[in-house]
């Protein structure tokens, strides 16, 4: 099992991404994380550091545990019955599985965007305003308006919806709905955004917009993305982690993973062969 040692990541001086990642602090850290569904061990002891302001992509064949691991990062697995988690996950050094921790607050800090766009059956405005209201982020209507506008702007949706904020969010196109969900996640000022195959239900143009958005968001947020599209992982991420049968096989600079992966299993997966 490989651990991400910042020293290991600065192997090539000319590699901008490595230097960038190494100069940043660790945002989230997983140590010997195991997830059981009943007796079935879905994740078998994963050690991984996620750096501040990086985009890290999780790739691997179906059932490799990448989505399960993603969900441990904001305790989404808590909602699944007979799911048991071992090991330690920290956010800024704090254990997120500490019993005294407020899970709702955690999920505001570590937001999530899902595979299928899932706007609330409310207006576009209320979709965004829901979180800030819940967390008491806006005292006046004016503040709330501002949060809604800036979130929609960051998600690249403002120009398209500013004249119909009172219309239902479900009336938007798939790609717009997904950006609405991203805006909703942004509205509560998260630090980390988890994305579980955010583009798998979108067409190439909507996908390109989301990818562009991910690139812009990385200035303010840390992003972990699960994707089945290897091209997408290659395009948007700084580092790529390859999961296989519940284990983390390799994590490396994305460029290295796609040109010269260290591990045979990674090579076999990304070239599309299993021998």
């Amino acid at each position: 099992m490989k651990m991400v040692d910042p020293d290991v990541m600065v192997r090539r001086d000319d590699d901008r991404q490595s230097q960038r990642a190494a100069s940043q602090g660790v945002k989230m850290s997983a140590r010997d994380v195991k997830v059981f569904y009943g007796d079935n061990e879905a994740i078998k002891g994963i050690d991984l550091d996620i750096m501040e302001n990086e985009v890290i992509a999780f790739i691997g064949p179906s059932g490799c545990g990448k989505s399960t691991f993603l969900r441990t990062l904001n305790r989404m697995n808590d909602t699944i019955e007979n799911c048991r988690i071992e090991g330690k996950v920290t956010l800024d050094g704090e254990d997120i599985y500490d019993p005294s921790l407020d899970v709702v607050l955690l999920r505001a800090k570590v937001g999530m965007v899902f595979q299928k766009p899932n706007p609330f059956p409310k207006s576009i405005y209320d979709n965004i305003a829901y979180g800030p209201r819940l967390h008491g982020l806006a005292k006046r209507k004016y503040d709330l308006d501002e949060i809604v506008e800036s979130s929609l702007r960051k998600a690249g949706l403002w120009e398209e919806v500013k004249d119909r904020l009172d219309r239902p969010g479900t009336g938007l196109s798939g790609g717009q709905q997904q950006r609405l969900c991203i805006a909703r996640a942004i509205a509560v000022s998260p630090e980390v955004i988890l994305m579980d195959e955010p583009c798998s239900a979108l067409d190439p143009i909507a996908t390109a917009k989301i990818e562009e958005l991910i690139d812009e968001l990385t200035e303010s947020y840390t992003i972990a993305i699960v994707t089945h599209s290897m091209q997408q992982a290659a395009r948007v991420s700084h580092r790529t982690a390859y999961f296989h049968l519940g284990e983390l096989v390799e994590v490396n600079d994305t460029e290295t993973v796609f040109t010269n992966p260290e591990h045979e299993l990674t090579e076999a997966y990304i070239t599309g062969r299993f021998g």
Partner: peptide, 9 residues
Amino acid sequence: RHPAASDLR
């Protein structure tokens, strides 16, 4: 085919 890794090389 968007080759990767050894295929790309």
